[in-house]
Design a protein around this nucleic acid. Sequence first.
DNA 1: CAGGGAGGTTAGCGGTCGTTAACCTGGAGG
DNA 2: CCTCCAGGTTAACGACCGCTAACCTCCCTG
Lengths: 226, 226
Amino acid sequence: MATRTDAPTRREQILKEAARLFAERGFHGVGVDEIGAAVGISGPGLYRHFAGKDAMLAELLVGISEQLLTGAKRRLAEADGAVGRGSGGGAAPEATGRPAGGTGRRPTGRDPEAVLDSLIEGHIDFALDDRPLITLHDRELDRLRDSDRKRVRQLQRQYVELWVSVLREVYPGLAEPAARSAVHSVFGLLNSTPHLGRPGSSPGRASTAELLHRMARGAFGAAATG
Amino acid sequence: MATRTDAPTRREQILKEAARLFAERGFHGVGVDEIGAAVGISGPGLYRHFAGKDAMLAELLVGISEQLLTGAKRRLAEADGAVGRGSGGGAAPEATGRPAGGTGRRPTGRDPEAVLDSLIEGHIDFALDDRPLITLHDRELDRLRDSDRKRVRQLQRQYVELWVSVLREVYPGLAEPAARSAVHSVFGLLNSTPHLGRPGSSPGRASTAELLHRMARGAFGAAATG
DNA sequence: CAGGGAGGTTAGCGGTCGTTAACCTGGAGG
DNA sequence: CCTCCAGGTTAACGACCGCTAACCTCCCTG
């Protein structure tokens, strides 16, 4: 139930193109005819797959939020299992002032630093691989029906709170409001990928990911240096 | 010619409300009737002040870009005059690994650290005081006529390059592409203010500004730690 | 006290857009 | 071979939206 391996179905094709177009020109700036044309069919043919334009946006935003949250939960559980391992072998910068041995109650993870690195790595992967979705994520939320918007906001809040709790395990001195602000700000930092020149630009994907990772850790560390 | 002190004219009133509405619901999501209603007049009365809806957006975006750039230039010149002073007495975190005495050619500023802090401070002030404009700035650029878009992009690029050159004075080891990416990412961090809960929320304005400042410096420092 | 322009108003036109209706078609299943 | 349905097509409707036209009304000025 985690990752699909089938051939891309029509629905998915439509969603992908719709995401790209919405990100480029905004929800109201894209017509259904354009979305249809992007997948080879024209105009109202889309209504065989979706109830309407709103439904496409809703499915996109809910899907993004769920994907982010479940990915984060999975990484947290993985790091909980393999203690001390960085899971993907990604960039794990030096510890930024590890606190002594303060054994405050820690919800799940064993090595908070590794969990935080894993969360950052996951978010960066998402931001680099699905730039249109990242763009939509905090831009077109208000165009949703109330029920969908509530659901998305709930998922987003869970995601943020997960980061906040992990962050406060790494930096116990960080107050909760400050931690929440810091998390939102680091999301802003990581979600800047759409402004970083198209994929294949100046620096490669790997070095961009490393740079973002270092900066995120640096920002968190500075936030904790009250 | 820098800051206005007159009473807010009708044009400015309209621009302010239009910015708020555009930021909330997107350019295409707002009708001229709503903008008119927001300032007490209704519908086509706006056309006594603006050539059209596009003209409002254009004036907003060009104005933002000019304000950011001229503000940055002014701060750079001020710091050039008063050596060693942080100009506004704002938060100036500890030097994050000041390089030895590498006297590489420095375009203008005398104390690069102070200039960088001043740039950060200015951007934070703008991001905190004009959230709708910050939102519009990187969201509705593509809705402009070609000439206006070109102008805005040119101003934005100058602004970025100014940051890049100052940043590379502080961290001479930082390669230019990495510096540019770092600057864009820190903009993403600083521009996260719209997500930080409405003004008057948990932490006060001053502490939020300090937090953002520390995080920006921390992110830059980490970017330079290659 | 004319008069004229700045700054409104309402009515309405033309175009666009989301959505529905009605129809068509190729291929799988009995 | 007939049937039927998934997945298309085009035509068209109704709503909305940006903008213009025509008109009105203070208020300032000579």
